[in-house]
Nucleic acid binder design. Sequence first.
DNA 1: TCGATCTTTCCTGGTT
DNA 2: TAACCAGGAAAGATCG
Length: 240
Amino acid sequence: MYFQQPPVIPIHCKLGDYDSTATTSNGTELAMLSKPIMSERSDIFLGSRDTEFFLPIIPTTFHPIETDFPEMRDSHLYAEHSIFKGLLATVTTYHSNPEQVGPPVKQVLPSIDFLMSPNKIKCSTDVKQHEKLPKCRTNPQRRGQSIHLWEFIRDLLLNPTENSEILRWENRRAGIFRVVKSNAFAQLWGSKKNNKGMNYEKLSRALRHYYKTGILERVDGRLTYKFGQKAYGWEEAWSL
DNA sequence: TCGATCTTTCCTGGTT
DNA sequence: TAACCAGGAAAGATCG
């Protein structure tokens, strides 16, 4: 069963439940789970057993406070909490006794960089959302390496305070960006992929492959690229 | 196991 | 001359 609409999962995540955090461009904090978390129902837990994912740390006022964990298989209940848009991660919810309750339940969660600030959140009933998503290769052994190159670029651009010396927006609204330091850019990608032999020549070739798929578009100017129609998540949150 | 996808690597030739 | 761009070809890695 696959939930097309990303839910907010009302769990009580605390220090020790996650091994790293990320902050979105709008300041939303996310927690990357390091171990399965049991729900208040003993037969269900959220796990990172075969996939990695982030959970948004929702401000209390937006957190759907409930005394019981929602029924994982009840899409109606999930629809009530479907307030995020923009999906990247896949989450598998396991039942502790598969023979008793069936296969894992897969669902999708919002991108770490595509979350809207709480006051910008809009409810959506668009169940087709997930169809726009590319396949997400998630493997715990490849944590941190499964990201696609264009997603890596997008994430760098969405953290301008840390990465403006490497990548910089040329035209934020149009999705045009420029590589400031090509060597540093290639080394950063190489370190991400554990590939010491990466250089800008190779990296740029990979970028040019994106022209065919529509993830990038050609623009004039050296070291300048533009996100294409197939790229998502780079837009400013308030324009959604 | 196999096909699809996404790089990675190497290459030639052209431009800035 | 160095850095970059364009794109073909093939191989590697990973996934479903």
